[in-house]
């Protein structure tokens, strides 16, 4: 329960970081998150989040032709998404280092 709350809390950061490297399409984002068991989240959580990020102007969407099958909708970071990502990454870094410090030799 606690672990899934933690995953949900950092999901937005994970998705922004994923599309920061290069534009990715929806099911690709779901698959890449699933490939990291610690971050594995169902499509039912990822798609509403992507819609929210698009509405907030943090990501922009573009349909592109696919070499196989129908066109795909790609998600890419906008300028304000990039700023948000930087702020979130900094905050996460602070929390992470503070916790590492606290946990220290307990692990």
């Amino acid at each position: 329960m606690w672990a899934s709350q933690l995953r949900k809390g950092v999901l937005e950061l994970a998705v922004l970081a994923l599309v920061a490297h290069e534009a990715r399409y929806g099911s690709q984002i779901v698959d890449e998150l699933a490939a990291r068991p610690a971050l594995a989240i169902t499509a039912g959580t990822v798609y509403p989040l992507l819609a929210r990020l698009a509405r907030a102007g943090l990501v922009k969407t573009t349909w592109q032709e696919s070499p196989v099958g129908p066109p795909r909708k790609y998600y890419a970071l906008t300028a304000s998404g990039r700023r948000q990502l930087a702020a979130m990454a900094a905050a996460f870094g602070d929390v992470s280092s503070a916790l590492n410090d606290l946990l220290g030799d307990l692990r």
Partner: peptide
């Protein structure tokens, strides 16, 4: 249809 076919 795809889950994210339309943004809105």
């Amino acid at each position: 249809i795809e889950p994210d076919a339309e943004t809105e």
